[in-house]
Simulated assay, not measured.
Amino acid sequence: MRPDSRLSRMLHVLIHLDEAESPATSDAIAAMLGTNPVVVRRTMAGLRNHGYVRSDKGHGGGWSLATPLADISLLDIHKALGAPAPFAFGLANDDPDCLVEKAVNAHLTHAMDEAEALLRERLASVTLADIAADFQMRLAAIGH
């Protein structure tokens, strides 16, 4: 199964939008991500519905930030993307009467729930401004 990289990709886009001097078109974002502009519009529409970006039509239009980076956490964007499951593995439900399967599923469910709670806590503690600051530090380190 291919990993879901929408969170990483949208964080990337949002940092670029913050750095941009003008709105970015869906075509430009699609070229940056190596995807189709329709995919960009669909994904960005979800972020717009949550108030993180805005879109302007016409000449000079495109996508821009609607919320300061310091007010957006990684968890906010994760939720705006539909809160995709963080784990690629699932539980077996081949024999609901099997006690071994029940025991395995109970322990895996508990472990995944704990791991997901920890991940959500960490995502909530990091803002996009933190990522932008990291980017600026890396940029300064290479002398640009």
Score class of each variant (00 low, 15 high):
1 M>I: 09
2 R>Q: 15
2 R>T: 15
4 D>C: 04
5 S>M: 15
5 S>C: 11
5 S>A: 15
6 R>L: 14
6 R>M: 14
6 R>T: 14
6 R>E: 14
7 L>V: 13
8 S>R: 13
10 M>C: 04
10 M>P: 02
11 L>N: 09
13 V>I: 12
14 L>Q: 04
15 I>C: 14
15 I>P: 03
16 H>A: 03
17 L>V: 04
17 L>H: 04
17 L>E: 10
18 D>V: 02
19 E>H: 10
19 E>C: 06
21 E>H: 04
22 S>G: 11
23 P>M: 06
25 T>P: 06
26 S>D: 11
28 A>V: 12
30 A>Q: 03
30 A>D: 10
35 T>G: 08
35 T>I: 13
36 N>I: 13
41 R>Y: 04
43 T>F: 04
43 T>N: 07
44 M>E: 10
44 M>N: 08
45 A>N: 15
46 G>V: 00
48 R>I: 07
49 N>E: 14
50 H>I: 00
51 G>M: 03
51 G>K: 05
52 Y>Q: 02
53 V>T: 15
53 V>C: 14
54 R>V: 13
55 S>K: 06
57 K>M: 12
58 G>F: 15
60 G>N: 14
60 G>L: 11
61 G>N: 10
62 G>K: 02
64 S>W: 09
64 S>R: 09
64 S>K: 08
65 L>A: 03
66 A>N: 11
67 T>S: 07
67 T>F: 01
67 T>E: 11
68 P>S: 11
69 L>A: 09
71 D>L: 12
71 D>Q: 12
72 I>T: 04
73 S>L: 05
74 L>I: 07
76 D>P: 01
76 D>E: 06
76 D>H: 02
77 I>N: 00
77 I>G: 00
80 A>H: 00
81 L>W: 11
81 L>H: 11
82 G>V: 07
83 A>V: 01
84 P>R: 05
85 A>K: 06
85 A>Y: 08
85 A>T: 01
85 A>P: 00
89 F>I: 14
90 G>H: 10
90 G>A: 11
91 L>A: 10
91 L>K: 12
94 D>F: 07
96 P>W: 04
97 D>M: 04
101 E>L: 02
103 A>E: 14
105 N>Q: 03
108 L>Q: 07
108 L>N: 04
108 L>G: 02
108 L>D: 02
109 T>A: 07
110 H>D: 15
111 A>H: 05
112 M>I: 08
112 M>E: 10
113 D>T: 13
115 A>V: 08
117 A>T: 05
117 A>G: 02
117 A>P: 00
118 L>F: 08
118 L>Y: 06
119 L>H: 00
121 E>H: 07
121 E>W: 02
122 R>W: 08
124 A>T: 00
124 A>G: 05
126 V>W: 06
128 L>Q: 06
128 L>E: 05
130 D>E: 10
130 D>P: 01
130 D>H: 06
130 D>G: 05
130 D>M: 09
131 I>Y: 02
131 I>P: 00
132 A>W: 08
132 A>E: 13
133 A>M: 13
133 A>C: 09
133 A>H: 03
135 F>Q: 12
136 Q>W: 03
137 M>Y: 10
137 M>E: 15
138 R>H: 12
138 R>T: 05
138 R>L: 14
140 A>F: 04
141 A>G: 05
141 A>E: 12
142 I>P: 00
144 H>K: 06
